Amino acid sequence: MDSSLNVDVSFRQLLHNICVQFSLPPPRYRMTVHTDGRLCSHVDVEVSRSSRFMEIIICHGAPFSEANQTQENAACVAIKRLSNELSFEVRDVNLEDKKYYKNLYDRISDEHLELQDEYEMINLDFELLKKSYNFLIEEKKQIVAALKEMKESIGRCCAFISPPNVDPMEEEPTRHPTTSNTGETTASTSDDPETPSVVSSKNFDFLYSFVCTLLKIMFTRSYQSKTEDVLKQSRGKKKVRSLIDSSESDEEEE
């Protein structure tokens, strides 16, 4: 069976039935001839606006070479116009499909609006997280610079405390126990005993690791506080959005 076969209906008869159902006067058709010889039909339909006044709706059909075709086209245009004026639908085999697809379109449109709102909320959260991330990166750079400066300061302090001929990063000189005349054992070094003790490499590493640990703790606490602020802002916006949606739904129900 050929699926492209169309079955036509009589729009003039359908227009007549609509006028009878709404207690309107029967439609009146007029015909004009174009300069190229084609015919063009006009149909007049009277619609009551009040108990005393009637409005004449004039609908023009497309020009055709046959009078039947142009009258059918004019009647089709008049039916579409009356369906908007009188708020009715023509029941045919396509009506149920039309209603189904209309409901499907409305449901998909509502889902689209919900997804769009959710996308906007996620986009706001993303912007907040992005700003927080950039802030933390800048803070990390500042901490790294401060750490480098502290390391250099510790090195300068060690160089200032140490003798000129001793590297502060070298290990402490080995102490050799010696026995004094009084019988007491003391630790002596190969350096001058009156020279102050040199800051050893172990002490320097311990001090440096302590400063690093302290800065890491500060950075971790700052990151946690920023993350909590972002989460609070995000939850607050979602709560406000839910309150707005609930108020709108209450207004629609009223």
Rank of each mutant, 00 (worst) to 15 (best):
T35G: 03
S153N: 15
T213D: 14
R38F: 14
V198D: 04
Q71K: 12
N94T: 12
F53A: 09
K237G: 04
I143F: 06
H112L: 09
S10G: 09
N203R: 14
Q71E: 15
S83K: 04
F135Q: 02
L243Q: 08
E252I: 13
T220I: 05
D8G: 01
A75E: 04
L243K: 14
E253R: 15
R91D: 11
I137E: 07
D205I: 06
E170Q: 03
Q69A: 11
E252S: 11
S197N: 12
F11Q: 06
V33K: 15
A75T: 02
T182Q: 06
E253Q: 15
F135N: 01
D44Q: 08
S234L: 02
A75L: 05
S222P: 00
L86G: 01
E139W: 02
N181C: 04
A159Q: 09
V20D: 11
E66Q: 11
F64C: 07
V240Y: 15
R30E: 05
K216S: 02
K239E: 08
E111K: 02
K140W: 11
P25T: 11
N134F: 12
K151W: 04
L215M: 13
S200E: 08
F204T: 10
P168A: 07
I108H: 09
E251F: 13
V20R: 05
R38I: 09
P63S: 14
E248T: 13
E138Y: 09
H16E: 11
T189H: 00
D229A: 14
Q224C: 11
Y223L: 00
K216E: 06
N6R: 14
D110T: 05
I79V: 12
V230H: 11
F206Y: 05
E114L: 14
I154V: 07
S200T: 15
N123F: 03
S209Y: 14
E194D: 07
R241S: 14
I154G: 00
T174E: 11
H112I: 02
V45N: 00
S109V: 00
V230D: 03
T32C: 07
F22V: 05
L207R: 10
Q233W: 01
N84L: 04
C212S: 09
N103L: 04
S41E: 05
C19E: 03
E66I: 06
L147S: 08
V93Y: 08
Q71D: 08
L113D: 01
H112C: 06
K140F: 12
S23Y: 14
L215Q: 08
T70Y: 05
E228M: 04
I161D: 02
Q21W: 10
C158E: 02
S109L: 00
L15M: 10
A145T: 08
L104V: 09
E254M: 13
E253Y: 13
P196A: 00
N6D: 03
V240E: 15
K140V: 08
F11N: 07
E120S: 02
L207D: 03
L104E: 14
C212M: 07
D110M: 06
E172S: 06
I122R: 05
K226D: 10
S225Q: 09
